[in-house]
Structures are given as C-alpha cells and as structure tokens.
Design a protein around this nucleic acid. Sequence first.
DNA 1: TATTGTTATACTCTATAACTATA
DNA 2: TATAGTTATAGAGTATAACAATA
Lengths: 149, 149
Amino acid sequence: MDSPPSPPIGLALSRAAKIVGRAFDECLSAAGGSLPTWLIMISLKTHRLGNQRELAAAVGIEGATLTHHLNAMETKGLVTRRRDPANRRIHVVELTDEGERLFHRLRAAAQAHDERLRTGLTPADLTTLTHVLTQMTHNVAADDGGPDA
Amino acid sequence: MDSPPSPPIGLALSRAAKIVGRAFDECLSAAGGSLPTWLIMISLKTHRLGNQRELAAAVGIEGATLTHHLNAMETKGLVTRRRDPANRRIHVVELTDEGERLFHRLRAAAQAHDERLRTGLTPADLTTLTHVLTQMTHNVAADDGGPDA
DNA sequence: TATTGTTATACTCTATAACTATA
DNA sequence: TATAGTTATAGAGTATAACAATA
C-alpha cells in the first residue's frame, strides 16, 4: 500500500517558482516596476472591473493590500483614483499617461522574460505546462472535504 | 517579426505558483511548520552539509536569513547549534528529538499536499512538468549574454 | 445596515552592512 | 587577512481589524 512516492512535485514546483519568480521580479524591477504593479496594471488594462475589490481578487490579494499598492502607484504618478459620480463609494482607478508608458515597458520586459523561459521547450511542453498548472490550481482550490463534498 | 506571442507563460507560472504555494504554506502551517523550516529540515536530513553557508545555498537564501530562521528554530527547540571541535568557526546544526518529530509531521503534510496536487494528472504530465521546470530554471540561471557567452 | 475603500498595525521572508569569533 | 556565522537594520509584500464615507 505504499505506492512509489514519485518525486515530490510540490517541492519541485516551489523551488522552481522561487528561482523563476525572482528572475521575473528582477526583469520587472529593471524596467521600473514590480510584480504587484504589473499584475494590477494588467488587470486594469484587460478587464474592465467594477470596483477595487474585484481588482484585488483579480490580482489575488486583499483589498487593504491593493490600497497599499495603489497608494504607492498614485504617489509615483502611475494611477489616479476618482469617485464614480453614479456611486460615490466606488473609486475608479485609471492609468495616467506615465502609467501607460510604464505598462508598455513592463510588457516588453515580461515578453523578454517569457522568451527566455521558453528556450529549449517545445509547444507541446508549454501546452502540457499550462494544462498542469491549471489542474493543480483547481486541485488546490477545491474544498478538500472529499470526492463527494 | 511579431511571432504569435503565445500565452504569457511567466505570468501563468507566477499565478499558479502563488496559489499552489499558499496552499503548501497552509499545509505546513497546519502541521506546525513553515516553508523555510521545511526546506531547512530537508536539507539537514538529506545532504550532510559542511557549514551553514552551504545549507543556506541549498535552501536558496542568504546566510543571514538562515541565521534568522535557525534562531527561531532553536528557540522552539527544533535544532541545536554547537561548534565543530575540529574547526570552531563552524557551527554544526542538528535536529533535536522534537525537531525530528516535527520533520515527520511536515513530511506527512507535504506528501498529502503532493497527492492533492497530482490529482487528475498523468505520470506523463508530471514527467513533462519536472522537465519543464528544470529547463526553465536553467534558462533563468544562465548568464544571458548570448548563445556563445 | 450594508457596501466600498482606507488607515493603522503587524507579521513573514528576505537582504545588506557591520560586527564577532576563529583560523 | 580570510573564513564562518551573527546582529542590526531595513524593505517588500501581505494580512487583519478598526475606521470613514457613502448608499
């Protein structure tokens, strides 16, 4: 009943993600940004989100953490926050022109990082990777109460 | 010259690693540990390292950061540090009995996490994943001065 | 009262620089 | 002087709890 343990994949993923993630961070830092900034900007550009809680959820952080980053981004002149006239509880976040420029620089940096990452990998490898990451994310998100929970 | 961008794999990896890594953290926390503690313990158990700098390198952190974690682990009674009589500059780190017990609990937690992660994945998926992570780690570690650098 | 967001505070992990101890 | 490790300090990212503003 002791199936061959097979190499600990959580550990391998954790280690690789640490190394690759650091390289990604350095890429973004060198371009004048950071990972949270980049994630926030992507969310602002791709989805049109209704409020900051949705934005925070898209980035994978809490609302207060998002506020923390938005404060810094606003100080740097990358975003503006203004109240929605229709519902003044909602703060509409928008990239400034300077924010747009940084976005383009970060996109270029992220693309360069991606090309480096893909070196030596086949399209099939990348397809499998995407599939595996999706599956693992689901595995971990699932309420683990059992197969019939 | 604009090859089809193909989905940003760095971003996908970053997002998945964040989610899976948090689940891993929670697993280890629930068992009374943390990721750094677990990585340190694994290194202590598997390699027989000569000094703390090697241990830090194996874990992927700086020496001072390792000291920080070892201080906490020593306070909790998980490890002891004593000077090597042959070279009193070297501090030999060893798990206490309580450290051993925690190691076994964390190993069980990590294995449970691994089984959850592997749900819905074929052995071929996992083989590819391991290969891809290894390749990406190399891609990122390489001095990027060019193919003949 | 419920919703939206901010402020205050603190924790974890990490790093760099300066220091002590030993060789 | 060189090596091993520690201490002091700092910074990034995150979170929870309490708060203010709006509906």
